[in-house]
Design a binder for these strands. Structure first.
Lengths: 101, 101
DNA sequence: TTGAAATATGAAAAGGAGTTCATATATGGG
DNA sequence: CCCATATATGAACTCCTTTTCATATTTCAA
């Protein structure tokens, strides 16, 4: 890559990274990257308020990083995109290996 | 991952993602992920002020994502970490494939 | 159909990060 | 030495995001 990608690509890259970089959203993503969870479960897993979790889930939905499934009055969320899983893995590995040094 | 990683791991993951998610820093990283560039080159590649580029390079240095090499009064920067390259690739691929839909 | 549980939403508050501007430092050339 | 170039730094300003608080909506159960 001698030249930078065009503006649109860069914008979309930045979007994805920004969405993943918030601490609440990152915890949510990590919680639902392998198995689905409903909102109440996420509230306790993540340790944030119901309102905050719901707001951040809306952000994840808007950016199409999660898929939802409704069961009664519960809504289950799961990471919808293999690239997002790959992203989380790469970041996780980076941190694990850095901590060894 | 039924349980979340511990707080320290999550913090460090968030750090990496936050650093990469700023538009100026992302452009810098993309510019120096394969080949090194000095600050002046980056200023024109990225299209930001010299001061801003320098500030953001300092952030990248502080987080150990880049390596520097001094040649006279020029300082060359390059991405120092394979995981960072992997991260950029995953994000890039994600965007490329999403754009097809 | 009434109440409780689960989730979503709107608006305001609180806080932090990016950017600029001015200037400092360092290095090499004449 | 002195000047120009290359890079770094500090402080202030601006803007945007996260978070909270209050409330609305939906769905199920009794």
């Amino acid at each position: 890559m001698g030249q930078l990608p065009n503006e649109k690509i860069l914008d979309e890259m930045q979007d994805l990274l920004s969405v993943a970089s918030d601490s609440t959203r990152l915890k949510i993503l990590m919680a639902i990257c392998d198995e689905e969870h409903n909102v109440t479960e996420l509230v306790s897993l993540v340790g944030a308020s119901q309102s905050l979790v719901s707001h951040q889930l809306e952000v994840l939905r808007r950016h199409r990083l999660v898929t939802t499934r409704k069961e009664g009055r519960k809504v289950y969320y799961v990471v919808s995109d293999d690239h997002v899983n790959a992203l989380l893995n790469v970041v996780y590995q980076h941190v694990i290996e850095k901590d060894r040094e």
